[in-house]
Design a protein around this nucleic acid. Sequence first.
DNA 1: GTCTATAGATAGATAGAC
DNA 2: GTCTATCTATCTATAGAC
Lengths: 215, 215
Amino acid sequence: MSSTKQTADSGHGSSSRRAELLALAGRLFAERGFKSTTVRDIAEEAGILSGSLYHHFDSKESMADEILRSFLDELFGTYREIVARDLGPRKTLEAVVATSFEAVHNHHDEVAIFQNEAKYLVQFPRFAYLAERNAEFHELWTSILSEGVRTGAFRADLDVELTYRFIRDTVWVAVHWYKPAGSLSADDIADEYLGIVLDGIAARRGRRPARKSAG
Amino acid sequence: MSSTKQTADSGHGSSSRRAELLALAGRLFAERGFKSTTVRDIAEEAGILSGSLYHHFDSKESMADEILRSFLDELFGTYREIVARDLGPRKTLEAVVATSFEAVHNHHDEVAIFQNEAKYLVQFPRFAYLAERNAEFHELWTSILSEGVRTGAFRADLDVELTYRFIRDTVWVAVHWYKPAGSLSADDIADEYLGIVLDGIAARRGRRPARKSAG
DNA sequence: GTCTATAGATAGATAGAC
DNA sequence: GTCTATCTATCTATAGAC
């Protein structure tokens, strides 16, 4: 509180510059991978030298940690809100899928890092929460699917475990090709995707032609 | 041809030891990623020292190159055979999906490397063929889907480009969790996946209950 | 908050003995 | 075909000047 003037923040020496650097590092981690991104890369992108980064963060891991923690906290907060609304399996699934695609849109880099680097990062003790989040994710999805099978919203012969993996993977891997600036919005994609997952791509003989957003 | 006795091979100083080392490197590349796997890691796994690896290969890149080349040649050979059979869009799609899951089963490491490392490797000139293979893949899938829409096998309102990405991703990401030794065979999984992609997970009111393998 | 300078570790790769 | 020994480059991180 003398020469380092700061806006109100949550404990670290944060504020704008810090956030700026984190966003930058996040973009590089997402594009090139955590291991392949060097501290020098990040510094260069920020127009400073590598040593200067250590004034803001104490390690490269710290940066990834901070990025993932805040993202996952927010994401799972939203998931919990959805579940609490008690919309029934089908609407809940639609809402969770929509939220996930929105995350791909609004937090593209964070999703990419979570998808591509979690397996590597989880080996470090400080990233143990990544395994917990995955378990939480599993619980969220299989609950929705199981209840749907029970209530008759979903096919009775569904392999819940396999379907969970299918949905989880397809939702998240969109991060590999989705461009936030593209012509299709996250909602468009969520809608098309739900069309496939719920009704399939095969032509119907008679019923339910195209589905429209259930918003 | 003096002290280095070799079985008939295709140009390099190949034979069993070479193949052994390649398989080993492939496993590590698949598990930890290309960049995170050091030459020393590979050597240690083989019970030799890092310098000794350079008797067999002239670089780490060469190893990945050789692994991917032979795998992709074989895979796309099979794809071409399927297309040549002219089975119609739906059966072709089923066969291509089945083949892909078989690849996840039989060439697990290779698929993982192709999925996880292609984006990084393609930046090196020697790996330019990875981009070509991706284009070939795109052509294969969109042809099947477009023809299916044309003939009425698939929904008329399908976004072919988007559906292509979903199916492609769906098939390949299984490599992240599929264990060749697990209880479900590649065929079982292909069948379940086709069930979802073709008919969706939503319960039907009346028609077509569960599908059975068409292979 | 950034720079200079550098320590200390580890990476890919090479040369020659065995 | 493997080992010993080592070069060179690059990486994360630190210390202190400005």
